[in-house]
Amino acid sequence: MPLLPRSTKMRETLSRRVFVILNIVFLIVLCIVYIVPIWNVVITSVADDTDVQGNVYLLYPKSFTLKAYLRILDGGYFKAFMLTLVTSVIGTVLSIVFTVAAGYSLSQKNLIGRRVFMLLITITLIFDVGIIPRYIVVSMYKMTNTYWAIFIPMLMSTFNLIIVRNYLSTVPESLMESARIDGCSEFGILLRIIIPVAIPIIAAVTLFYFVLYWNRYTEIVMFINDQTKSTLQVLLRTLMFEGDSADSRVQIFDNFKMAVMVMGMLPVLVLYPFIQRYFISGLMLGSIKG
C-alpha cells in the first residue's frame, strides 16, 4: 500500500526521496543480516563432509552433493512428514474455527458476560499452566500416547484469539446491523460478512497456528512415548542432535544438521507465499467500506 497513490500527482520533496532511498538501503542491509546465516545453512547442507569439518563458516559453496538430503529421506522422513502434515492441517483447521468463532463472539459488545469471558481469557495469558499439570490432565483424559495428544492439548492460543478478537472489533457495527435487519443469523453474518473482511488476519493466524503445530516439539516428547506417533520435528531433532550426547555413537556433520533444518522448514516455506498474499496486500479494503 504505497503512501503516494499514483493518481495523485504530487511532487516528491527532496527529503521524501532521501527517506525512500535510505529505507530501501536499510531494508537491503537488514536482508543481508538475515540472509548470511540462512545462506550458510543452505550451502552447508549441500557441501561434502570434508568441507564442513572443523570450525568452518562457509560463505560460498565449495561442493555440491545431496547426500545429506537423501539420507534424511531414507530415514523414515515421509511417514513422520505425513503424520505431521495431517495433524497440523486438522489442528490448524480446528484452531481457526474455534478461534474465529470465539473471537467474533467476544468482539460483539452486547455479548452477555463479555467482560467475564475476557477476564478468564486474560487469566490464561498471565497464569501459565506448567507442563506437569498439563500432562496430568492429558493423562486424565486418556490422551497420552494417542494421536489426539499431538494437537488437542494445545489447540487454542490465547495470543491468536486476542489478535483476532481485536481485529474483528474494528469492523464497523453498521455492517452487521444492516445484515441483521435483513434477517441474517449470527452464523450467516460471520460467514458472509466477517470472514471476508477478516481474511488478512485469518491468513496471518492460520500461518501462526500452522507453524506452531509444525514446530511443536517439547509437548510431543512429553505426551507421546511411542516413536511411531512422533512428529517430524521429533525425528529431525533426534537425528540432528544425537551426536551431542555424551554416549553418542555417531558423528553428525554440519551438512547433515543443516539439511535436517532445511527439510524441517521447507514445507512451511513452500506454503508461506500463498498465505502471505492475503495479509500483505490491502486488497480487502474495499469490502470494509461495504
Partner: peptide
C-alpha cells in the same frame, strides 16, 4: 518408551511426578 536424549531427565521427572 523411547525418549529423546536431551529430554530424558525431564521426561522421567514428569512421568514419576504424575
Amino acid at each position: 518408551m523411547v525418549i529423546p536424549n536431551s529430554q530424558y531427565k525431564q521426561k522421567l521427572g514428569l512421568l514419576f511426578s504424575s
